[in-house]
Write a protein that binds this DNA or RNA. Structure first.
Length: 580
DNA sequence: TCAGTTCGCGCG
DNA sequence: AAAGCGCGCGAACTGA
């Protein structure tokens, strides 16, 4: 029933071209020989338009020869509809084709609608089934597009593009009905930025990385040698194929560690850093924690990242999940650039290529500012308006001292108080959190007293908590309208946290979308995003302007949502991610 | 034997 | 009773 026209030579494309110009909306899909836009090839490009046969273009034959015509066709539509636009945009870009203007991404729309009656899974087949009652074949994903094309491949390809038009029709109504239009706009605009960022990737200095690896490997060996007296020396067996066999004790096994600790008279529920913090004076525990830290750095980062460098670009291309977290935050993987250790030695390996600089900006206390807005806390709002240091203010309120007498340590402790208590942490939690995260010790009595004084000082936050506790909402919205539903197992802290984290994500995504538009035609590329931080790479000569631009765009995005509180982004120019 | 789960920990 | 939240990843462990 699907009707398409297969184009495999330039003459045919020229002949039909005029039928595909100046429509309002088109559905676009592509088929490729794999997932990596730099290593794999674009095979088919399908363009579906109402009232016309769907164009199915063999890109092996028509690129680059038909590039200008295809670009002209794409440009002539006001709105392009994709399923997972990021993927197609990257492949088109690799082939010199650019998507511009408004786009509608059915996958992103589906993710936003998950909390408003939509299906949990957002693959095209699920969406078509749920919103249109249409059964789509899933064969396409498994088929091979590198050889001769089959009738089925063309037909299914055309169908996927056609269904997008129908899906958009239904999903727009759903988005409107559920008041998700604004957040959808933010997501769609942001999608361009994410595609761009994944396409360009980030540069890693492999020499520096290898040096660091050697150094950490050495430290780990030394640490392990010091551990042997406690865990027993390895039994060495020389065999034909293995040089060495490790003893029966495996320091990576929490199970074995737990029984060893038990034997030493140390009773803990588990072997986590948190549980062991109480015994941090014990020399074995101390060594164990150090060992695990080094092992983590080696296994998770140092030994894996070199294998993920793309052979074509020689750069790292992490994969971002635009709605990876249910809060609306992004996730990241392969590798997860958002969890690279903060140590300077690690971050210094991520740099610009020759003659380039990194421009790094992060929001100052964005979640606390969002809370001030949500809770409408006059004291917090005033503090931010006056440009005061909120951690210092909290220290002075909680310790009942003059603000100028607050020491560095007291400010550090107040940081724990601010971040912990606004999200519903109890006194006991506050105590251990302060110890673990900020190295600040407080007694249980102090923690209780701090908590009490905190909520006296910040009445708005207190009322906000009280209201949520009283009404136990089953759902919440961010300031851009993103919806989150709570399950029966959700507690208070989730209810305090999700809309705040999500609003911070709205703001960041809004900034990314704007930024993408501003950097067209410049030397600037986006290379990393980490929740409240954006990293750009640009020519050294443009670094100053880039820094100004980035700061302005981020702050404008913040102030678009936080009407009563100034939003500040702190920017720096550097050779590497380690900063100045 | 191998896919799925749990633990522990890096980041914000 | 007491509780901050959100991710991804590697190694060990579990279960059939």
């Amino acid at each position: 029933m699907s009707s398409y026209i297969f184009i495999n030579n330039i003459e045919d494309l020229e002949k039909v071209k005029d039928n595909y110009l100046a429509g309002k909306v088109c559905g676009v899909d592509s088929e490729t020989t794999g997932l990596d836009p730099l290593m794999c090839r674009l095979r088919l490009l399908q363009i579906a338009v109402a009232g016309e046969q769907t164009l199915v273009i063999d890109c092996f034959e028509l690129l680059p020869v038909g590039k200008a015509i295809i670009q002209e066709i794409l440009d002539s539509f006001d709105i392009k509809v994709f399923q997972n636009a990021k993927f197609d945009i990257k492949f088109l870009k690799a082939n010199g084709l650019e998507i511009k203007g408004q786009l509608f991404d059915t996958m992103l729309a589906g993710q936003l609608l998950r909390t408003s009656g939509g299906p949990r899974r957002v693959a095209l087949a699920e969406l078509a089934n749920h919103y249109l009652g249409v059964a789509l074949s899933k064969e396409q994903q498994r088929s091979d597009f590198s050889g001769k094309l089959s009738e089925e491949q063309l037909e299914y390809g055309a169908k996927d593009a056609e269904i997008l038009l129908k899906l958009r029709g239904v999903m727009i109504l759903e988005l409107k009905e559920n008041k998700l239009i604004e957040v959808a706009r933010v997501e769609f605009a942001c999608c361009y930025a994410i595609a761009h960022m994944e396409y360009f990737g980030i540069h890693v200095d492999l020499n520096m990385w290898q040096k660091l690896t050697k150094q950490i490997e050495k430290s780990k060996e030394e640490c392990l040698n010091k551990l042997y007296p406690y865990i027993g020396y390895p039994t060495v067996q020389l065999g034909l194929f293995e040089e060495r066999k490790i003893s029966d004790f495996n320091p990576n096994s929490h199970k074995q560690i737990l029984s060893l600790l038990e034997a030493q008279g140390i009773h803990v529920d588990n072997t986590s850093k948190h549980a062991l913090a109480l015994h941090s004076k014990n020399p074995f525990v101390k060594l164990l924690l150090e060992y695990r830290h080094l092992e983590k750095q080696l296994n998770t980062f140092l030994h894996t990242i070199p294998n993920q460098i793309n052979p074509v670009s020689k750069r790292l291309h992490p994969n971002y999940g635009q709605n990876g977290a249910f809060s609306g935050r992004m996730s990241c993987g392969n590798p997860n650039i958002q969890q690279i250790p903060r140590e300077k030695e690690f971050r210094a390996c991520f740099n610009g290529t020759k003659g380039r600089k990194l421009v790094i900006a992060d929001y100052s206390q964005i979640e606390l500012r969002v809370i001030a807005q949500f809770a409408n806390d006059t004291r917090m709002i005033q503090a931010y308006k006056d440009g005061e240091d909120l951690h210092r203010l909290t220290a002075s309120l909680v310790l009942q001292k003059d603000i100028q007498d607050i020491t560095k340590e007291e400010r550090q402790a107040a940081k724990a108080v601010n971040f912990g208590l606004v999200f519903g942490m109890g006194a006991a939690g506050l105590k251990s959190y302060a110890a673990n995260t900020y190295g600040t010790t407080m007694t249980m009595e102090e923690a209780k007293l701090f908590k009490k004084r905190y909520f006296v000082a910040y009445k708005g936050v207190n009322n906000w908590h009280w209201h949520i506790k009283k009404t136990l909402p089953i759902s919440s919205r961010t300031l851009a309208g993103r919806k989150h539903n709570y399950g029966s197992d959700s507690g208070m802290s989730g209810r305090f946290n999700t809309p705040v984290q999500g609003t911070a994500a709205d703001i960041l995504k809004n900034a990314l979308g704007q930024l993408y538009l501003e950097i067209q035609g410049t030397s600037i590329i986006m290379v990393a995003v980490v929740h409240d931080e954006i990293v750009l790479e640009c020519d050294a000569s443009e670094a100053e302007q880039t820094a100004d631009l980035l700061k302005r765009i981020m702050e404008e995005a913040g102030n678009r949502y936080l009407k009563d509180i100034p939003v500040i982004a702190e920017v720096s120019i550097s050779d590497s991610w380690a900063g100045k």
